[in-house]
Structure formats: C-alpha cells, structure tokens
Amino acid sequence: MDPRTSLTALRDFCAEHLGPGLAERVAGLARPGFALTPAAPDQAAGHSRFGGDPLLEPGVPWPTCEGLPMSLLAVLDTDALPPWLDGLLPPGTGLLNFFHLDTESEQSDPAAWDVVRELGVRAPEAGCVVAARSRLAVETGPPTGASVFAPVAWQAEPGFVLPDLFDDAWDTLGLGLGADHDAVQAFTYELHNGLSVPGEPRSEDLAFGRPVFPTGSAPLLPDGEEAESYHHLLQLSDKHEWSIGGDGGWMHWSIPTRALRAGDFTQAIPTPDIW
C-alpha cells in the first residue's frame, strides 16, 4: 500500500469511530513509521539491524560518556527505507548508528552504572546518534569496554502511527471538555486496548512514527521542550539481549524536527521509557 492510500484508509477508519470532522484532526496526528522485524539477509532494509558493529565514516571518533565508551545498539539504513517520509530527511542521509551507555547487560562495565546513577539514564550525554554516508561507512570495531550484541537484520514495513494513549500529542487538538474530548478519549483507550488500525506498523521495534510507552509514561524530553517540536527516531523494546533495566525499559531516541530536516543528528537524544 502506498502512503496516500494508507492515509486515506486511516482517515476513513477514524471517521467510522469519530465522525468526519474529528477524524481529519485525529488523522493529522499520524506520522509515517516502519515496523522493524527480524529478516533474512536478502529481505533486510539495507544495513538496518539490531546490534553488531557500527557503520561509521573513517576518522569519526567512537562516542563516549564521561570517558566510558557507549555501546552500539542499532543501525538504521535510511537510504533503504520505503519512500514514506515525505521530505523529512535530507537526500542521502544514509546510516544512523544508535548508541547508549550499557549498564544492564552481562557485558557492561561496572563503572558505567556509577555514571548513569549520577547523570540518569535519560541524560542526553548517555546516548547519541551518529550519521554516516553509505558510500563512505565501514564497519568499525569497538574499543575496550564497549558491549557488542549479536546482530539481527531488520526488514521495514511502512505505515502510519497514531500517538500512544499517554502521548502529549493529543493535547495539541485543544479539545477542552465536552463531547469531542470524550469521543477522542474513548477512541484512544480503544486503540490502547487493541483496536486494529488499518495499515499500522505492527512491531515493538519501530523506526520513526510515534513512540509507545508501556509504563504509562510520556515523552521524556529536556525541561521546557515541547514534545511536538521533536520527532521520534527509533524505539527498541525490552525483548533484546540489551536492556536499560527498570519496569518497562523501552529505549527511544528523538530529535528536534528542525534538526532532523537539516540532517543534524548531533541534536538527537535518548528519550527512554523507564520507571
């Protein structure tokens, strides 16, 4: 299904539950995303995968936090994603390498826990995204102290993602109190409890789209930042060899939308969901 057809199906679905006026506003909150699921090598979205070694341009330093090396958690090959992002990324963005300081796996350096305990797992310094142009990127072995996780290739299935029940995005509708507010609230609870949305990417690992918050939390952004000024980059569930611990323990990275459109991934930050 192409993006236009999928978005029309989503609007029709919302209209069935909310009526045409509200449906258009609610469907306007949907963002294109990609369900990431294990794939055979010939079905993978380019170099997209969980784990393995990062793909970096020669000379790019390995990211660190307080002098400790971060660990590579995932690679997203944006050049190989289906063309659903509608100009959100600059052409030739290439590969995105997602790093975070490992504190929970059997490989983790005990000193990392001391750092995260002081800074907090949500600290921008504890994670980063390093972009690399596909034609220049090479697999880069880790320094001592970085964890390496078994690679799992991903395929990427596109679709549109509505906000999670706990996402502040619903507040941007400005519904106040009344029938419209009650209708949308009932709709979001139905979505949360399993109402099937046509064409929605179905995977606990997700590229772009909107984040899910199994702990009942919300986007954890720097103080004073508006959630809708950020764009979701990647969601990793707690089903992997790596974990951030706690209850829930789903990892996310987000980036200011203006930085995403400019291709400035130095502004990407970890926005985990954890209690």
Results as ranks from 00 to 15, higher is better:
Leu233Pro: 03
Pro256Asp: 05
Leu73Pro: 07
Arg210Met: 07
Gly174Lys: 11
Pro219Gly: 08
Ala186Met: 00
Leu175Asn: 05
Trp113Ala: 01
Pro211Asn: 04
His47Thr: 12
Pro58Tyr: 09
Gly178Ser: 08
Ala126Met: 03
Thr93Ala: 06
Glu190Pro: 05
Trp275Met: 08
Ser71Val: 10
Leu119Asp: 00
Ser237Cys: 07
Phe13Gly: 00
Asn193Ala: 01
Leu85Arg: 06
Glu104Cys: 14
Asp171Tyr: 12
Pro3Tyr: 07
Leu73Gly: 06
Phe160Ala: 00
Tyr230Met: 06
Phe50Gln: 04
Gly120Thr: 13
Ser243Cys: 12
Asp102His: 10
Phe265Gly: 03
Ala23His: 07
Ala40Lys: 12
Trp275Phe: 12
Leu18Pro: 04
Glu204Pro: 14
Pro82Met: 08
Tyr230Glu: 01
Phe98Cys: 04
Glu225Gly: 06
Thr172Gln: 03
His240Met: 08
Thr8Ser: 02
Phe99Val: 04
Phe166Cys: 12
Tyr230Pro: 04
Thr8Ala: 09
Ala132Lys: 06
Gln155Gly: 09
Asn193Glu: 11
Leu89Asn: 12
Ala111Gly: 13
Pro63Ile: 02
Trp253Phe: 13
Val161Asn: 04
Glu226His: 15
Trp154Asp: 04
Pro63Ala: 02
Asp168Lys: 14
Pro3Lys: 13
Thr266Pro: 10
Gly92Phe: 06
Val152Ile: 09
Gly246Ser: 09
Glu125Met: 15
Thr64Leu: 08
Phe160Trp: 06
Asp114Ile: 07
Asp114Ser: 07
His231Arg: 14
Leu29Val: 12
Pro256Trp: 02
Gly216Tyr: 08
Leu22His: 10
Leu234Trp: 02
Trp154Ile: 00
His252Ala: 05
Trp250Glu: 03
Gly28Val: 09
Leu18Ala: 03
